[in-house]
Simulated scan of single mutants.
Amino acid sequence: MNIEVLKVHGSGNDFLLIDEMSDTYTFTEEERAKLAISFCNRESELGADGILFVLNSKTADARMRVFNADGSEASMCGNGLRCVARYVCEKLQITKAVIETMKANLQVEKEADLFPEIPTYKVEISPVTFQVKDLPLNLQQETVINEKIPGLSDDLVFTALAVPNPHIVAIVNQEQLESDIQLKLSEYVNGPNPLFPDGVNVSFVRPLRKGHIFVRTFERGVGFTNACGTAMSASSLVTCLVGLNDIEETIEVYNPGGKVRCAVHENDGVYKIDLIGNGTYVYRAVVHTTLSDFSPTTVEKTLFYQNEAQQYEKLQEHATKFIQQTN
């Protein structure tokens, strides 16, 4: 079987995009999971954090489904949504679209370049909930906002929220960021544990200066990634809740893969977040694969987007310099 893929990334969070709007693929749920496990394997010629399936929708311009590298399906992916936004807008020759996701139909649109010659899209991150049952988090209280979680850490305080995938966010200093605390916590809450039966994304946030933060995320089903779009959105919201940043003001969010821009909006206690950043193309390829386990037998890369890669490297250099200046 031959499968066409487009390698893309948002803030260095990389994916394989498969277009089911045009092509007549008929994947079963089991096959989607197998595809993700096989194609995303970093030891293969492809390798990625996940697969973005782009499908037709009855209620929106397109539908996005996201499968992580371990074969699990994510309810949302902000970095992936930006890449899908670009793909759908260019395919349909429009600048604004609505993308159906697991929990909501979300607005996306072309945005002014975040950095010179970086294709940039703004995507809506919602719905947002702080109810622990929505993560789920097994605690005898309704919310966890800037407080300790029993059995998790003696020193750190967390905010738990779903956007709509589950996150816990801790604001830390440089020493805590450089320690192994995040790894140990993340492995614990994403293994058998009494708190998070479905696992959870774990973000450490270091304030750089007003309107600027650094976020590192251990992503459920993936591990440490260059960036997680929903985590950066959730982290921006948390910094507003604790008074480090302001609602309705843009926040520059730096990450190991580069940077994005967020803006938190609130209306009668209901939050939504704008996530603004790159949707970069890396290459197009045709993957020849076996039907039994979808192992890639050969990968024919047909088109490389070298200029986009070069420009994103410049953005990364810019982001790295800024972070170093604030240390």
Rank of each mutant, 00 (worst) to 15 (best):
M1W: 09
V5P: 01
L6P: 03
G12H: 12
I18P: 03
S22D: 00
D23Q: 12
F27M: 12
T28M: 03
E30K: 14
R32M: 13
L35A: 02
I37Y: 04
S38F: 04
E45S: 14
L46T: 04
L55M: 05
N56L: 05
R63E: 09
G71N: 10
S72D: 01
S72P: 04
G78D: 06
N79W: 10
L81K: 05
C83M: 09
Y87V: 02
V88Y: 04
V88I: 14
E90V: 08
L92Q: 15
Q93I: 04
I94S: 00
L106D: 03
E109N: 14
E111V: 00
F115A: 10
E117Y: 10
T120M: 07
S126E: 11
P127A: 11
L135Y: 12
N138T: 09
Q140S: 03
E147Q: 15
K148R: 15
I149W: 05
L152F: 07
L156V: 06
V157G: 02
L161P: 08
V163C: 09
P164C: 07
H167G: 06
H167V: 11
H167W: 07
V169C: 06
N173H: 05
Q176M: 11
S179Y: 10
L183M: 03
K184W: 00
F196M: 12
D198L: 12
D198I: 05
G199K: 09
N201Y: 10
V202E: 04
L208Q: 13
L208G: 02
E219S: 11
R220Y: 08
G221L: 11
G223Q: 01
F224V: 08
N226P: 00
A227I: 02
A227L: 09
A231Q: 11
M232E: 12
M232W: 01
V242N: 11
G243C: 08
L244C: 06
L244R: 02
D246E: 13
E248A: 07
Y254Q: 01
G258V: 03
K259L: 14
A263N: 13
H265E: 06
N267W: 00
G269N: 09
I276L: 07
V282D: 02
T289E: 07
P296R: 10
E308M: 01
Q310A: 13
Q311F: 02
A319H: 07
F322K: 10
I323P: 00
